[in-house]
Nucleic acid binder design. Structure first.
Lengths: 163, 163
DNA sequence: CTCTTTGCAAATCTTTTGCATGCTT
DNA sequence: AAGCATGCAAAAGATTTGCAAAGAG
């Protein structure tokens, strides 16, 4: 039982995330601003893994006065508010993705050739990890797993230039 | 079939790694230098996961004239030569660890309480990962997997302060 | 001798911060 | 109004690179 999908879905979760973020702001006495809404929308409409610069570029298309520093500050807040998670794949730039919403957990397979990222979820792996941890005397709480692989057929490989 | 061990082994692999590195250099027409030997020794005698600055500090104890740039350049060469692997845990600094030597592959389980790292190897997980990749149309080449867990019994938990 | 290395400093790159000004509440 | 936010530019931190001098084969 393995499920997968490539980057780039989008559901009516847009409203949900805006709400979660707004509530987070209210609770801390922070303010809802034009730029924060724009940045969240940009993240929502961008790919699954985005870096600050990409977001900044998107945001500038809508309001060129919004500075890079604000993007960084806002991405950090969204991370604090638990709607985003910060990851470090390659090494240099940080990239952000939406945090798992309830049961939406997934892992990553990264193509060695085009560096495209395929997300997948495999029940067997999840169960086995839990068992392994248990056998070592622990209770599994979370994990991070990335598979690095070569394309078996070119159809899968987009040869995208993500950088 | 799961095997495990705690951090901190060390075999007479020192000589082996020096040899591997030297051969790598020879093959590319590069030179064996005093600083390169010193840097490799520093990595060998440091902990399991080291960053450039840590190595630089160690190296300076032996020869204070060795510059940080040389350390970076050398770590990169050691990564190219396959004796080291570069990892990005926290985010900012890169950290290096020795690459798996032949069959020594392992994954990490990190204790949420004491942050001790237990290394393990599980055949089932390895096989399943291969299968998952294959089903997604890829050929698995390597992976990175970290399990984060709570101690089930205190005996396992060393409450070590590994920084 | 020739070509690689090195150390130093300057350059990059990404991310953070200080500050005066502009906006939400 | 009062206090958070923003934009800009400068600062920081990690890693890289240019260059002339030093070293390995």
């Amino acid at each position: 039982m393995t499920t997968s999908r490539r980057s780039g879905d989008s559901l009516p979760k847009r409203a949900h995330l805006h709400k979660v973020f707004d509530e987070y702001l209210s609770q801390l006495g922070l303010r809802q601003t034009r730029q924060r809404k724009i940045i969240l929308d940009a993240v929502l409409s961008s790919g699954r893994h985005v870096d600050a610069e990409t977001i900044s570029n998107e945001v500038k298309k809508i309001d060129s006065s919004i500075g890079l520093a604000t993007v960084y500050r806002t991405l950090k807040m969204m991370t604090d508010s638990q709607i985003l998670v910060e990851r470090h794949f390659g090494g240099d730039r940080a990239s952000f993705e939406f945090a798992d919403q309830g049961d939406e957990h997934h892992d990553h397979l990264i193509c060695n050739q085009c560096h495209d990222i395929v997300e997948f979820y495999d029940e067997e792996l999840e169960k086995r990890q839990e068992l392994v941890a248990k056998n070592l005397g622990f209770v599994l709480k979370s994990h991070k797993m990335e598979l690095f692989a070569d394309c078996a057929n070119s159809e899968n490989c987009k040869r995208k230039n993500l950088k």
